[in-house]
Design a protein around this nucleic acid. Sequence first.
DNA 1: ATAACTGTTACTATAATAGTAACAGTTAAG
DNA 2: CTTAACTGTTACTATTATAGTAACAGTTAT
Lengths: 139, 139
Amino acid sequence: MAVNTQFSIAVHIMAGLAYRCDQETTSTNLAMSVNTSPSFVRRVLSKLSKAGLVQTATGKAGACWLAKDAKDISLLDIYEAVDAPKAFSIHNYTEQKGCTVSCHIKAALDNALNKTQKAMEASLDDISLAQIVSDVKKK
Amino acid sequence: MAVNTQFSIAVHIMAGLAYRCDQETTSTNLAMSVNTSPSFVRRVLSKLSKAGLVQTATGKAGACWLAKDAKDISLLDIYEAVDAPKAFSIHNYTEQKGCTVSCHIKAALDNALNKTQKAMEASLDDISLAQIVSDVKKK
DNA sequence: ATAACTGTTACTATAATAGTAACAGTTAAG
DNA sequence: CTTAACTGTTACTATTATAGTAACAGTTAT
């Protein structure tokens, strides 16, 4: 699939870290759960780490763990950390001079995107990682 | 770009039809405004037509026009008509038996997606095509 | 010194998408 | 009744974002 699933994978990784918060966790552990390569996991972990959501230790016995309590991490934090795609994307044409619609549609679409993006982010902000882990355990 | 912009293009097309609602409009006219090929425009138009948002006439002097007033068409109608991508997409792994997170994360992510998708759609439903056209004219 | 990890870069393969071309079907007009 | 100019659709190609892999430098416990 050439569809962006980094956000989804990032949530999976974070849920894994939250679920086994008592244990040492390596990129290989996480890769097995996600069913991808340790390298790919580390690439996502790197973004999460730069965003201050996870901490890591290098060297032998290197590992990763959550930087904060799962209830203090929202899906929006994760969404922003991995720079996931916007609610929709605006096409990238060259404006047709003399055509009002062609020249101004981008600004109108930007307005609409801003509004929709805000709604989407508010919803993500309302879901905590702890909630996800709770769902995972419950089912 | 391998990023889905059909929704954005569909809104552009619909805005074009709404803007010049008094004139006959062909796929070639619209293609010039969008800066793409008439074929591509017709492919999008076909979806909009099947969704009952535009009407078309075939034959010589064939044309397209809005099926309803622009104020009675929301961006959500257009979003659904072109079957645009969801708020985010869930990765497609094979479950790792014996790993609770791996087995149940999909259900948890589905919950989250449903909620976020609803928020996004409510926002799109709140923006009418007439609003877009008004923005286009104003600027 | 070695083993086992992270962090990062470079590379390949895949698949979604844009974009194009072609053509059958339709209809107005001469 | 032939022609021109559309729509509607399918098949095809090129592009490019993404997943996924491999490799290796840097780090640290043993």
